[in-house]
């Protein structure tokens, strides 16, 4: 192992890791929002919108992210829409993650008994207040393990972004291998940096899961 080479490469990796993190955060935040909206639309059974959401979820979950990104990066310009690499990456990630988040929220929403909603409404709360104060807090706490798994999944999926010429971690590693043939060093750093990002996220997720476990309401572990 060429340690000196690895040290020299560190700044490039740090920069790439930062980019990966930024895009992943933006993508995850937007996917959470999109997923929640999709899940609510489906659970409220809004006629046309429900159908569109279902179609989107099937399309998104049953096509690879790589294919989705190709479509955005190479297909859209043919239709006269030009997106930057970063834009493509974020949109692609949201398109992919949104459906997974929607399914996670849906499982949570379905776990809240109908009688909970009725008892809230019987007190004179509006449907909106019932959703905000009664249904969602319970639903989200049930969804947390699935949401956390999705977050980790989405961060890992960012490794595909190098195909849209985005200088993320994977891109930097491939670049270094191509230029210097230092395969071992480049890949070791790559694994190290992914772990550096993902281990804390996993630990945070595990803590959060313990914290909101349904039976533990009022008894934070």
């Amino acid at each position: 192992m060429d340690i000196e080479f690895m040290i020299n490469c560190l700044p490039m990796y740090v920069q790439a890791a930062w980019l990966t993190l930024r895009i992943a955060s933006a993508g995850i935040a937007l996917a959470l929002g999109a997923g929640l909206i999709c899940a609510l639309v489906r659970s409220a059974k809004i006629p046309v919108a429900s159908f569109i959401v279902s179609a989107y979820i099937e399309l998104s979950r049953n096509t690879p992210l790589l294919v989705q990104l190709f479509l955005l990066y190479f297909g859209l310009p043919k239709a006269g829409v030009y997106l930057s690499s970063q834009m493509c990456a974020i949109i692609g990630l949201v398109f992919l993650g949104g459906s997974y988040m929607a399914e996670a929220f849906r499982s949570g929403l379905e776990s809240v008994d109908k009688a909970q909603r009725e008892s809230a409404e019987s007190l004179g709360l509006t449907k909106f207040q019932t959703a905000i104060y009664v249904v969602l807090p319970q639903a989200i706490s049930v969804s947390v393990p699935a949401l956390a798994a999705n977050v980790i999944f989405m961060i890992k999926e960012t490794s595909v972004f190098s195909v849209v010429a985005l200088a993320d971690l994977m891109f930097v590693a491939k670049d270094l291998i191509g230029m210097y043939y230092k395969t071992n060093e480049a890949l070791t750093l790559l694994v190290g940096f992914y772990l550096l990002i993902l281990l804390p996220v996993s630990a945070l997720a595990a803590w959060l899961e313990r914290r909101v476990r349904y039976a533990g309401f009022g008894n934070p572990a």
Binding site: Q116, E118, S122, L123, Y214
Partner: peptide, 17 residues
């Protein structure tokens, strides 16, 4: 209307959170 008509259910339905 429901503010004037209270209802209590068989399964309590307190909010667990």
């Amino acid at each position: 209307v429901r503010q004037k008509v209270g209802m209590v259910f068989q399964s309590y339905e307190l909010f667990p959170h």
